[in-house]
């Protein structure tokens, strides 16, 4: 029983970290129809900044600088590279492919700088854990649950109650009509990219914090695990991103926790399980858990 509780709690905490990453995917997709493959390296960029700056600025200062800088980088990427391409039909697909190129460039440079190092981010939680009845959970993961819940609620509120959110949703419904009604599409879009960049830097903290040993050059790749979570949730819904992430986190933890009983499926199935779940869900609900019918999909 303790084992099951352990897996459930571990899965939820892991899902909360994925949710921060998945939220970035969702915000970008909703605003621009682009599936950003550069998200992982943006995350690594944010994490790297925290790692180099935390000694001088303290953790909070480094985090603030990193969130801002990553937001600016993501915004610049959208404004200077993606938006300048041909805006015709299928532009989102072309831009998605451009993000692959950006990812390679960024990742190569960051990998070169990080090399084989393990960089501590100087976060305040260290390896502290909190006991909840018979099971324990890392403080950093509790923080991740709180931060991702707050982030998702904020993004949800932003979408629903601000002018920017209204513009974004209007553009999502009908780009031309929104433009005719005076929505400044490119600004709305760039702001969304900035938001996603900031979220990526925030997610880096929790991907590198205990139980992980620090920031590695491969930390960005972990972000790809949030990809099935975003797809599961319907790609355009913040709540869906949260639900999808929790589902993926739980799946991973439960499958890894019961690996010996699942040996029929081969060892290491935990890595495949999120994608298997994604496929199964899409078979039943082709638009994802919270997706809307007819949404463009990449």
């Amino acid at each position: 029983m303790t084992g099951l509780l352990d897996d459930l709690l571990g899965g939820l905490a892991l899902g909360a970290v994925y949710a921060l990453v998945a939220l970035g995917f969702v915000v970008i997709f909703k605003a621009s129809g682009v599936l950003s493959f550069a998200h992982g390296s943006l995350l690594l960029f944010g994490g790297y900044l925290i790692a180099v700056l935390h000694d001088d600025l303290g953790f909070a200062g480094a985090l603030a600088v990193a969130v801002l800088a990553t937001a600016l980088l993501a915004g610049a990427l959208d404004r200077l590279l993606l938006q300048r391409g041909d805006p015709g039909p299928g532009a989102a697909h072309v831009q998605t492919i451009v993000t692959i190129g950006v990812d390679i460039v960024l990742l190569t440079e960051l990998s070169r700088r990080i090399g084989g190092d393990l960089l501590p981010l100087g976060d305040p939680w260290g390896d502290a854990v909190t006991g909840l009845g018979p099971v324990t959970v890392a403080d950093s993961r509790l923080a991740a649950i709180v931060v991702s819940a707050v982030s998702i609620a904020s993004v949800f509120a932003l979408f629903r109650y601000t002018r920017w959110g209204l513009s974004l949703r209007a553009a999502g419904e009908d780009v031309e009509a929104a433009a005719l009604m005076g929505v400044r599409l490119s600004r709305v879009r760039t702001l969304a990219w900035c938001l996603a960049g900031g979220l990526a830097a925030l997610a880096a903290v929790f991907l590198a914090a205990f139980p992980a040993p620090g920031l590695e050059r491969t930390t960005g790749q972990i972000a790809l695990k949030a990809f099935p979570a975003a797809v599961l949730g319907g790609m355009a819904s913040p709540v869906g991103a949260l639900a999808g992430s929790l589902l993926i986190g739980l799946t991973e933890a439960l499958v890894a926790g019961h690996q010996s009983e699942l040996s029929l499926l081969g060892e290491g199935f935990a890595d495949v399980a999120p994608y298997a779940v994604m496929v199964l869900v899409l078979l039943v609900r082709p638009t994802g858990l919270f997706g809307t019918r007819g949404a463009a999909r990449v």
């Binding site: 084992g3 930390t219 790749q221 890894a256 690996q259 890595d271």
Partner: peptide, 19 residues
């Protein structure tokens, strides 16, 4: 417990081994 080079959080593996 088979893992990949990108797995850096071994919480689930530890749970399984403890069980």
């Amino acid at each position: 417990q088979k893992i990949k080079a990108t797995d850096t959080d071994l919480s689930a593996q530890v749970s399984a081994l403890r069980k």
